[in-house]
Computed example of a mutant assay.
Amino acid sequence: MSEQTPLRIGVVGFGYWGPNLVRNVHKLADSDLVSVCDAAPANLAKFSSAYPDVPVCASLDEMLATHEVDAVVVATSAPSHHAVARAVLEAGKHCFVEKPLTLTSEDAADLVKLADERDLILMVGHLMVYHSAVNHIKDVIDSGELGDVMYLYAQRLNLGKVRTEENAFWSLAPHDVSIVNYLLGEAPESVSATGAAYLNPGVEDTVFANLHFASGRMANIHVSWLDPHKTRKFTIVGTKKMLVFDDMEATEKIWIYDKGVGAPADALGYREDLTLRFGDITVPYIKMAEPLSLEVQHFIDCCRSGERPRSSGRDGLEVVRVLEAVSESIAAGGAPVATALEVS
């Protein structure tokens, strides 16, 4: 495919998140929005009023039969992701799927295997790994400025929106799990979690999950839609410095603390000579860009180059396995659950 030729993209789903994806596909010079399909006539009418020159279809089959597309963006409800994405890949088209990739690791592994067999790009909408601040944090960690990361914890809290189909971890934590895996460069080997269903029986509205990594590092994720404050915060503790990322801040999103615990060079015994260290606080300037625009552009670039996406299908599979394992651990009263997986 010529680099000068816009990537021909079809979008499936114009409900909750579809309009945002459509807006970015439509505005980017490297892409050509060929068609949008949705089973709901009201959604198609809404789309046509905003984009009258773009054809609409009532189904994916109709789109694939009547339009030449190179790639398809799937923005349907999560239970349909596996079937829709599989049909896209079987048709020989690159595929972008909103998070979560699927609702089971078995289905996710099936899509990863199929994409690999067909030499197609399969990418998942893990939006936060395209966030300018998150990528700045990745650079800080990789540079060694924080030292060795020992542990981190994330809080994603709010009062509402209360859901009844999936628990708070499935609803909110895919963002945080994808960030943790991306920043640490590894997926957890086991998880343990507890949760409580205060509002709807069987649907946990508050979850505390611990992720354990082969490297010895640990992450804690707390999610809730039953909290008085809207919180989107990450804290990373390293052997040299500590970092706090607060996504609710308009500009000063990252604070780096030159603080730690250690022993002086002439210490006689490490345990006896541990001291607290307090240094400067740095607030770096982050040039922000819309994460979704960066994400869609990355998908286009990967479709052209064949490069593995930053949020590949395998990354999506790893996140789904963590979500599954957290649910299993909650059901088992907090017992550790292994997250090992294989794509045969």
Rank of each mutant, 00 (worst) to 15 (best):
W225F: 05
T235I: 08
G260Q: 05
D176N: 13
V25N: 07
V22F: 07
M1I: 05
N135R: 15
V177Y: 11
V223Q: 03
D38E: 08
P309V: 09
T339S: 11
E68Q: 12
A250P: 01
G185T: 08
S329W: 04
M288H: 14
N167K: 02
I221C: 00
R163L: 12
L122I: 09
D107F: 06
L292E: 12
T104H: 08
S224M: 03
S31Y: 00
V326I: 10
L323K: 06
H94L: 11
F234C: 00
P284M: 09
K287M: 10
P309D: 13
D110I: 06
G10P: 03
L60P: 07
L7C: 02
E68V: 10
F169A: 01
A75H: 05
G15V: 04
S171G: 05
V140N: 01
E90L: 15
K230C: 01
K138S: 03
T66A: 08
E166V: 14
N158C: 13
S293Q: 15
H81T: 02
E117N: 05
V244T: 14
G125R: 10
L60V: 08
A91S: 14
L243F: 07
K230H: 06
A75E: 13
G10A: 02
V74S: 07
V11F: 00
E324M: 08
L341Y: 14
I221L: 02
P188Q: 12
